[in-house]
Structures are given as structure tokens and as C-alpha cells.
């Protein structure tokens, strides 16, 4: 992934799991790093789909206001071409978030023992 694609993916992850007053957003929690690792590992079969998805979002995506980012993501979520991948991408990002210390803490889960 080139730096532009990385910035776009980081921004996407932060719209899937937006930062708020209670918990950090997806990328700060570790879901972006999780995705990058997984796309060259267990999820390598989706790396090309991810690239096509980010290409469709365009090189300016990361600089758009969040409302515009959401609109753009919803457009892709509704498109025949990207619907299935975006659905999977959401699940991957959520996996990254809910296995991160920040995600677990948000819902009151503790690692004991």
C-alpha cells in the first residue's frame, strides 16, 4: 500500500469506528495496523479488493470532512461493485477494534489472569 492508500484506509477505519469522548477511533485503537497486517496475511485474498476500493474513494478521501467521507462510504456500501467488500472491511475493522485494549475497555471487558 502506498502512503496515499494508507491514509485513505486509516480514514476509512476512523469512519467505521469514529473517535468520540468515550473511546479512541479505530486507527488509534489499533484496527488500522491490524488490517495492514491481516491484508498481507490471513486476509491476503482481499488485498486486491481493498486496493480497488481505495482507488474508488480517490486520493483526496482522507482530506474530506467526515460528513463527506460518510456520504462517500455510503455510496460505495450501496454500489454493486463494492458492497460485499465494504461489508467485510467493516467486520475486519471491528475485529481489530474489539480485540484491542481500547475496544475491550470501552465495553468494560478485562483481561484477568
Amino acid at each position: 500500500m502506498n502512503p496515499i492508500e494508507q491514509n485513505a484506509l486509516r480514514a476509512v477505519v476512523d469512519r467505521i469506528i469514529p473517535p468520540d469522548e468515550y473511546a479512541p477511533g479505530g486507527s488509534e485503537a489499533g484496527a488500522f495496523d491490524y488490517l495492514v497486517t491481516m491484508l498481507s496475511g490471513d486476509l491476503a485474498q482481499d488485498a486486491e479488493n481493498c486496493r480497488a476500493f481505495l482507488t474508488e474513494l480517490g486520493s483526496e478521501f482522507a482530506t474530506l470532512p467526515v460528513e463527506a467521507q460518510d456520504t462517500e462510504l455510503q455510496r460505495l456500501a450501496d454500489s454493486d461493485m463494492h458492497r460485499a467488500f465494504f461489508r467485510r472491511l467493516c467486520e475486519y475493522a471491528q475485529e481489530g477494534f474489539y480485540t484491542s485494549p481500547a475496544g475491550m475497555k470501552m465495553i468494560g471487558w478485562e483481561i484477568k489472569g
Binding site: R15, I16, D20, E91, Q94, Y98, I107
Partner: peptide, 23 residues
Amino acid sequence: PLPASFWKGYTPSYIPRWGQKAK
């Protein structure tokens, strides 16, 4: 349940899978 299992298997189908509402 593990938090990730909860997200995958314990949430109702009507909640969005991304965005502020999901969180």
C-alpha cells in the same frame, strides 16, 4: 462472550455494522 464474538454473534441484525451508531 469475547468482545469480538459478542460483536459478531450477539448483536441484533438491525444495528448498522459501521459508524457512530454501531459504536
